[in-house]
Design a protein around this nucleic acid. Structure first.
Lengths: 333, 333
DNA sequence: CTGTTAGCGCTTTCAA
DNA sequence: TTGAAAGCGCTAACAG
């Protein structure tokens, strides 16, 4: 691959002149400029970002660490992050945290070695994260959805608690009183906050929540399926259920269908995340929609801002989620 | 951030010694080694992959260019690609081609500047790609699913035609004769081959295919929804339909449900891709499953192989897809 | 067993 | 308007 030096030689100018025509960083006679540009084209010269990075101490690369990039919610988020970053001239190194602490530690290390300019962190909430992240070497970080304790970084929140509250309010307003909640593992913060909103709405409505009306399962469709199966087997069935993730809700819908329970006639279901599939579920799922695109834009904006700027105290911004009412909810029979 | 030089000074040794203890690249007395290691730890020194890359002409980074990373199929593929690459010490730069030729060209350029070691290309099939890709500067490339004409690169195929054939055979064997096909835009190769398999199976079974029995729509759930709506409005309804993508099939299932058409009793549906959501559709979707994980592993294997190795003629490997029979197909009434 | 040194490809003073 | 040269952080001869 051609180098600047070779271009310079071929053009009969100094290497610094070539650099300057490429970067438009000082006046160059039109004559020389054209000649250099011609040679560049001819030699198919492409400047080395590696050499540039070494010199400038910037890589224009940001790491994106998510629990699992194949989960539709994260996949959608990543897509917007990638988009926003690209517009600003940054590339994304994609990292999946799932696979255990070992992988995560290795990744963090790798990212630091690669001298990423910053990173977007969508915390999985696993406890082993904290320890690892503290090793970060003062790289700008923006956290999405959850603040790791002790990590001094910007934060973009999406009102999880409020979302859970809205979803539940919707159910209450429809007239439901027997409302269950299906959530992910109890130790995941994302889930916990959403359940918190559920509890607040229930309490506010003066509705009791029996312990067996809160079901924890894996954060997957399979988990949702299992949870619904369990719930529908109870002697006193709920008439509505708030599910803390669409993936689980979709699994639940599947279980309900298989059990001959009609949604929303016999059972109302509200999900969370508004993944693409939710709109085409059977029936189309009422769900809480976090502003994924806005979150991504804001995260990148904050990050680049910090990359470029001086130190500033960590900023925390909360974005509002909205309830998208579709066909999976109705008044109780 | 600490540099090797600083470490060397603090340890009272030469910079090359530090380098050698880090890389285990020549014998170092235990005494010195321990001291250096101690300082490294103390200074929280992390070697710079940027400097290394400049020296070694390797970045251990590979670009992954897909049409749209938020599409569950690609998202799943990417996840496995990331996984496989990571195991071999490579990072992934994620690139979405969608967004037009402008973005794609810019990305390609960026990747070349970043001196990626290689790239995995999941061709979108858009025509504007070809021109762009030919600009690549002899970077090793592995193509997934489709060969760009004129691109001299390894290739991993997934038997699209055969998959379409299998899906249709399944329908034929169940006794269906009125079989329709819903596919993406006619100009997308991925879709075209799958439709080809459909046609072959139909011809082989001596079944005629009326032109209006092949419906083209956008490659999304919305497209599938539209296609089914169209199909179900026909005076002579098909009893089964092969859909060239799960995303579309899910949309179709939704449309069928809304129209009161029962699947599989009144209409059998076969999808393609086996995305995670397919297993929890209502009813769970019978679909053709490309070996995503194997494809990803093979792609990375081929790529790294080529990155490390000498020139070899382009290799092309076809992996078989399998039909996953679930609950969306049954004999006609 | 250890140190000196020449680059890798670029940016950017400093001089002319 | 242009060029020479130092140096970014590292690796790997080459020389002790």
């Amino acid at each position: 691959m051609a180098t600047m030096k070779q271009v310079a030689e071929r053009a009969g100018v100094s290497i610094s002149t070539v650099s300057h025509v490429i970067n438009n960083t000082r006046v160059v006679s039109n004559d020389v400029r054209q000649r250099v540009l011609g040679i560049i084209d001819e030699m198919r010269y492409i400047p080395s970002a590696v050499a540039r990075s070494l010199k400038n101490d910037k890589t224009h690369t940001i790491g994106v660490l998510v629990p699992n990039s194949s989960n539709p919610y994260f996949a959608e988020l990543i897509r917007w992050i990638e988009d926003a970053a690209f517009e600003l001239g940054y590339n994304i190194i994609l990292c999946n945290a799932h696979g255990g602490a070992r992988k995560q530690a290795a990744y963090l290390r790798l990212l630091m070695e690669k001298r990423i300019d910053g990173m977007v962190l969508v915390a999985s909430g696993a406890d082993d994260e904290q320890d690892l992240l503290l090793r970060h070497q003062a790289v700008p970080i923006v956290q999405l959805e959850r603040a790791l304790p002790g990590l001094d970084a910007d934060l973009v929140l999406a009102g999880q608690e409020e979302g859970g509250y809205q979803a539940t309010r919707h159910l209450v307003e429809l007239g439901h009183r027997e409302i269950a909640c299906v959530s992910g593992p109890a130790d995941l913060p994302r889930t916990r906050e959403r359940v918190g909103g559920f509890l607040r709405a229930m309490a506010e409505a003066g509705l009791a929540v029996a312990p067996d009306r809160i079901v924890h399962e894996e954060f997957t469709s399979a988990g949702g399926h299992a949870a619904f199966t369990r719930l529908l087997g109870q002697t006193q069935r709920p008439t509505a259920v708030f599910v803390t993730s669409d993936l689980m809700a979709l699994g639940g819908l599947c279980a309900a269908g298989a059990a001959g329970v009609r949604v929303p006639a016999q059972l109302s279901v509200v999900g969370y995340d508004d993944i693409a599939g939710a709109g085409y579920a059977l029936p189309p799922l009422t769900t809480v929609a976090p502003p994924k695109r806005d979150m991504a834009n804001l995260a990148i904006e904050l990050l680049i801002d910090r990359i470029r700027g001086q130190y500033a105290p960590p900023r925390s911004t909360a974005l509002a989620s909205t309830l998208v009412v579709r066909a999976s909810t109705a008044p109780p029979q």
